[in-house]
């Protein structure tokens, strides 16, 4: 897997990390990206891999132009995940930046 190189911290962006974990099957990426597109969440980067037999996808998404709040989007994604059989979590990017970078 590569690294997520994000440009300068743009205060106009509101970045969220979306992780998708589950058994691999057809249509996972399509299902998640279609949902994000529907609500105008802009995907900045995607990485995917298989870890311990689980399909793992990490996306960096800008929700500054999103029609929904983060909490609303979380609920929509959870429901979508249940529908296609994967676990989807959306978290504010800062939790990762804070833990791993000073």
């Amino acid at each position: 897997m590569g690294t997520f190189k994000q440009g300068r911290s743009d205060s106009l962006q509101q970045r969220v990390i979306i992780t998708v974990v589950g058994h691999d099957r057809v249509g996972i990426i399509a299902g998640v990206t279609a949902t994000l597109a529907k609500y105008d969440a802009n995907i900045l980067d995607i990485s995917q891999t298989i870890m311990q037999d689980f399909f793992t996808m990490i996306m960096i998404v800008d929700i500054a132009g999103c029609k929904l709040s983060l909490q609303e989007l979380q609920v929509i994604l959870k429901n979508k995940g249940a529908e296609i059989g994967v676990d989807i979590n959306a978290q504010h990017e800062d939790i990762f930046k804070f833990m791993h970078r000073i």
Binding site: M1, F4, Q6, R8, T19, S47, F96, M99
Partner: peptide, 15 residues
Amino acid sequence: MPITLMPEEILETIN
């Protein structure tokens, strides 16, 4: 300064 997050770091936090 560009911020680079490794996928491993993201998964570590989640774990």
